[in-house]
Design a binder for these strands. Structure first.
Lengths: 199, 199
DNA sequence: TCTTGACAAACGAACGTTCGTTTGTGGTAT
DNA sequence: ATACCACAAACGAACGTTCGTTTGTCAAGA
């Protein structure tokens, strides 16, 4: 049997996995090495420091979300359709890059201040896209005028970011249904309303 | 000036604070000691191990949520009212015990398996109260019949549990308005009545 | 031949924890 | 009122271990 050698990308990927599972401080370089069949010290042939690994994983998370939201903003249609695209895009990023996302969401705070600041502002930028689309929807008259875009975007993102905590790919809920369910709660809530059409 | 001595409860409280901020593995016993003006070793006059502190804080979190939900289930009224009581109770627990809740939500997974199992089942029990109330509401006809109680409860709890990540007591949003906003999105969504978009 | 990736050994610092000792305090006997 | 003692709380040093990282070597590909 031929064991291929490890690349730097293998190491970053494994770091994302382990940081997601056991946390940055809960993962040692020796842990990480043995995940790849290496000694901890051998990792330093590829990287300069442990923190670099965290920076790399977290930055990738930020980039994935920003790219996704940029694509969503480019779809034709009004606020309703754009919001749905933002939601669907977010779900895709979470499900396709679960480890990176979990590290991005839970371990970014372990970065030192300068790196953390950069990540926070990327996150703000991302969230502003949700805020703006909801604002636009209120102005267009498709969303209720008593909706606070700031609060509503936080709530929708809360649902989206929590997916990593409970969703299991083999759990009988496919991603289309998931998007549908989130969009459904966000737009219509759970309550019966006389003026709301049943489907 | 009189410096009072530290009690065991002081230590548990400080542990909750530090575990919430820097994570369990990111907090050393020396860190924790100096937070209280003590050496790390001095903590062992009060406790047996670092993990005991985590167990204690996390258990308190579980207890707070279970008690809160028990009180909510006891209110008179239908599912709508009970759900609102569950939401308000959850918000109270989060805002009144922010450090404990943050440790409960983010650090419980660092517990060893036996402790973690117990905490997970407590959490399941808590979540089942939300699920049951929503089921009841669907049966009563006050919630839409196409609402999946399992999914809806997950989404509502996602919003509730994310509060610790963004809410600032001095941020101009009081807790009544917060409960109102959550209840509003959960029941009515953001969309203006009439029609769900065609797709 | 030169470069690369991994190894083995080792470094100093920090980790959780233990130990023997000191300090302050509050109750009891004188 | 004073002396004493038991006790809890904190200290400071040290334990064995693990941490992230550095160094030097060496085999295998290019």
């Amino acid at each position: 049997m031929v064991t291929t050698r490890n690349t730097r990308e293998d190491i970053v990927a494994a770091a994302g996995r382990m940081f997601a599972d056991k946390g940055y401080h809960g993962t040692s370089m020796r842990d990480l090495g043995s995940e790849l069949g290496l000694l901890g010290s051998s990792l330093y042939s590829h990287i300069d420091s442990k923190e670099d690994l965290l920076v790399e994983v977290v930055d990738e998370g930020a980039r994935l979300f920003l790219n996704s939201s940029q694509r969503a903003m480019a779809v034709d249609g009004g606020a309703e359709k754009k919001l749905r695209a933002l939601i669907a895009g977010h779900v895709d990023v979470v499900l396709d890059h679960l480890d990176v996302v979990r590290t991005y969401l839970n371990e970014a705070r372990m970065l030192d201040e300068s790196h953390r600041t950069r990540v926070v502002s990327a996150r703000d930028h991302y969230e502003s896209r949700f805020r703006n689309v909801i604002s636009q929807g209120v102005e267009e008259g498709v969303f209720r005028s008593d909706v606070d875009p700031k609060i509503a975007s936080i709530f929708i993102l809360s649902i989206l970011n929590a997916i990593e905590r409970w969703y299991r790919p083999d759990g009988g809920l496919d991603r289309t249904s998931l998007v549908e369910a989130i969009d459904g709660l966000a737009t219509s809530g759970i309550q019966i309303s006389a003026s709301r059409d049943p489907r």
